[in-house]
């Protein structure tokens, strides 16, 4: 071909392109190195938790860790795109059921892998069917998804004649369990961070702002959305697989409880969905508060969760991150105003 001198006519293959993209995002800036270091220190300190406490505090720590992972992976897709997924429980339940159904047949690590693959495949199917069209359809689809999978699983158990409850007995101490979840959550964080600074992450932000512009910028929007949805859902499925042994008894109504989807959304919103650390800021206070509320008012949890949700949507729509950033902006604004006033005064004296 003689026109190889113009731009873009010699396109590298998709694989080579992906490798190039990988290499160009491997260069870290100074701030990024610093943030990674801080992140590593916090994680290391958090990992010491089981050495100091057991029982109640450790189980609270476990809840925080798992929700941090779930909320961060939810935000990975729903944050930049504004496509609100209400289906976390569906994928979480799939992971859990994979482990529950196969625990007597296959080794546990293999089951986690299978759970991840099952979650990814299911997400791919749903993504391909719903994400090519407008966002509302996706939200609606995700709304009843957990209930749908629950019905199908119950039916399957009914047809095969197995009992609806399954026991998952894997020998793990609480500490090992905690560290396992911590590793999971760290992986979610690193992947989210890496995607957030990659082309794909930027593409997703463009899509969230204006899908028409995104298309005309050359972004294959369907592929970007489906990819991210698959990654996010796979994490939810892995989380379910990891949590299954802790519950030890799994049944459809528990595994596919819509409550979980709801909690993940509310925690992410409370923290703020436009920063990587946003969900974490929401997860910690909410989990602790929720522990308190569900102990104090066990029969009113649904009602109170709904109230908390409305309060967040109406009064802190941009989450804690929004509040913090507003505050620091206002503070720097005040400083700037004071400084210019000061200078104006100084100028007046001369």
């Amino acid at each position: 071909m003689s026109n190889a001198d113009t731009h873009g006519d010699t396109k590298p293959t998709a694989f080579a392109q992906a490798m190039l993209d990988l290499r160009e995002s491997a260069v870290l800036s100074g701030t990024e190195k610093r943030n990674l270091a801080i992140c590593a220190i916090v994680a290391a300190l958090w990992a010491l938790l089981p050495l100091f406490s057991t029982g109640y505090i450790l189980s609270l720590g476990i809840s925080i860790t798992i929700f941090a992972g779930l909320a961060t992976s939810w935000t990975l897709f729903s944050g930049p795109t504004n496509y609100i997924s209400l289906a976390t429980a569906a994928f979480f339940g799939i992971g859990m059921y994979t482990v529950a159904g196969g625990v007597n047949l296959l080794p546990y690590p293999v089951l986690i892998l299978i759970a991840a693959v099952a979650g990814a495949l299911f997400a791919a199917l749903i993504g391909l069917a719903t994400l090519r069209i407008s966002g509302v359809y996706f939200v609606i689809f995700s709304l009843g998804l957990a209930e749908l999978v629950r019905q199908v699983v119950s039916w399957g158990q009914h047809v095969m004649g197995t009992s609806s409850g399954l026991y998952v007995l894997v020998d793990r101490s609480d500490s090992v369990f905690f560290w396992q979840l911590l590793v999971f959550t760290l992986v979610v964080f690193l992947v989210s961070w890496w995607i957030g600074r990659s082309r794909l992450g930027f593409a997703l932000r463009i899509i969230g702002n204006d899908e028409v512009v995104a298309v005309h910028c050359g972004i294959n929007t369907a592929r970007a959305k489906v990819t991210l949805f698959i990654i996010s859902s796979t994490f939810a499925a892995i989380a379910g697989a990891l949590v299954a042994p802790r519950w030890s008894y799994v049944e459809p109504t528990l595994a596919f409880s819509p409550f979980l989807s709801f909690q993940v959304v509310i925690m992410s919103l409370l923290g703020g969905v436009h920063r990587l650390w946003g969900p974490l800021v929401g997860v910690i206070p909410f989990t602790i508060m929720w522990e308190f509320i569900s102990a104090k008012f066990p029969s009113q949890t649904t009602l109170l969760l709904g109230v908390a949700f409305l309060l967040i949507v109406y009064f802190i729509p941009h989450g804690f991150v929004g509040l913090i950033e507003d505050f620091s902006r206002r503070r720097s604004g005040i400083w700037a105003a004071l400084r210019s006033k000061w200078q104006a005064k100084g100028g007046g004296h001369e």
Binding site: G8, Q17, S25, A203, N209, D210, C217, G218
Partner: peptide
């Protein structure tokens, strides 16, 4: 059609991430 959530520079960059000339 602006991308309201992005800065001015990011708005321009949007055209080059997956465009005819791919840059990053």
């Amino acid at each position: 059609r602006m991308l309201p959530g992005l800065t001015v520079l990011e708005n321009v960059q949007a055209g080059g991430v997956f465009g005819h000339r791919r840059m990053w």
